[in-house]
Design a protein around this nucleic acid. Structure first.
Lengths: 99, 99
DNA sequence: AAAATTAACTTTGCATTACAAAGTACTATA
DNA sequence: TATAGTACTTTGTAATGCAAAGTTAATTTT
C-alpha cells in the first residue's frame, strides 16, 4: 500500500516555505519586503527560508536597484513549480479521501 | 489581506500527525500496531505523535485486551474531525489558487 | 515459580529546525 | 562624517523530531 504522506516534499512541510511558494506560484516576481509584509516575518527568518528554497533551486533571485535602493526579487523556477504542484497533489488526494 | 497559511493548525503541520489523522478520518477505530505498520514508524515515535493529538483532544483512546494481549485503539473525536477539516480547507484554498 | 515474550509506552540523548535579535555590508542621503 | 534603508548573516536559544534503550503489565513458556 502506497502511503500518500511519504510523498511529501520536505521543502514544503514548513508553513512559511509553503506560503512563499504559494505566493510565487501566482505572482511572477515578488520582492523581499513584499514577502516579508505578506507573511509577517522578521527579515532574518524570511531570509533563511528563502535560502532553503533557493538551495533546492525552487526559486530564483534577481538583485537590482530601484530608486537607488537595493531590491531583491524572487520567482518560482520551473523545477520549483513542478515540485510544488506534486506536493499539492499529495494533499489533494488526502482531501479527496475525506469527501 | 487574510493570509491562508496563518490559519494552519500546528497540530497537523507534521507529516506523521497528518497521516494519523487522515487514517482516522476514514476508519473508525484503528489500533496502535496497525498505525505503526501503515506509517512505518518506531513505536516510540508513533506514541509521541499520538500523545500530541491526544493532548489536543483530537483523538480518543480505547485500551482493552484481545486474545489476552493488550490492544490500544484510537479514533478521531468530533473536535479532531472538525479541526482537521478546517486544516484541509486551508490547503484546499491554496490548491484552488493554483488551478 | 522463574524466565521469556508481547504491546504499548516513557525516557534519554542527540541532531535538526525555527526564530528573534543583534550584527554586517553596501549604498544613498544629510 | 554620520545616519538611514535593504537585505542579509551570525548568534544564541528554544522547540521539534526521532531512534534506541528502558519500563510496565499481562501472558506464555520452561
Amino acid at each position: 500500500m502506497e502511503l500518500p504522506i511519504n510523498k511529501f516534499n520536505k521543502a514544503f512541510e514548513n508553513r512559511i516555505r509553503l506560503g512563499v511558494m504559494s505566493i510565487l506560484m501566482v505572482n511572477d516576481w515578488v520582492d523581499f519586503s513584499t514577502l516579508k509584509e505578506m507573511l509577517e516575518l522578521t527579515d532574518g527568518n524570511l531570509a533563511s527560508h528563502i535560502k532553503a528554497l533557493e538551495v533546492e533551486q525552487y526559486i530564483e533571485v534577481n538583485k537590482r536597484f530601484i530608486n537607488k535602493k537595493p531590491n531583491t526579487s524572487y520567482r518560482a523556477t520551473f523545477l520549483g513549480r513542478n515540485a510544488f504542484k506534486e506536493h499539492l497533489n499529495v494533499l489533494e488526494n488526502i482531501i479527496k479521501q475525506n469527501e
